[in-house]
Amino acid sequence: MNRGLTITLIVACVVTAVFVFRKIKKSQFKIGDTIYWLFFSLFLLGMSIFPEAVFFVSNLIGFEATSNFIFVVIIFLLLVKIFLLDARVAKVEDKLTKLAQKYAIDNETKEI
């Protein structure tokens, strides 16, 4: 892994962490949701500190370049997050629909 990628990972880690802490400060994030991003950030830091481990796994699976392996891992983690978010949005939409319907029926107006 070249030095540029290492530095990029460290910067990404710090930026993610700072972003999470700022959101928490403004109460715009739920505690449970921050855990994913904090671990994500730690994971980036881990990869930049122990490139040998990343190199080892990358070779084991058969990637030609370690950087490709890192991209694939990050894309996978983001896909998981999108998948979970998708499920959550569906649930929220369903609840919103039910709330709006209840409000509508409770406020039924009859024409005279």
Partner: peptide
């Protein structure tokens, strides 16, 4: 447990 630990040990310093 994970949520409690992250919340009490780390996030608490940033919350009001």
């Amino acid at each position: 447990m994970l949520r409690m630990f992250v919340s009490i040990l780390i996030l608490q310093w940033f919350r009001k």
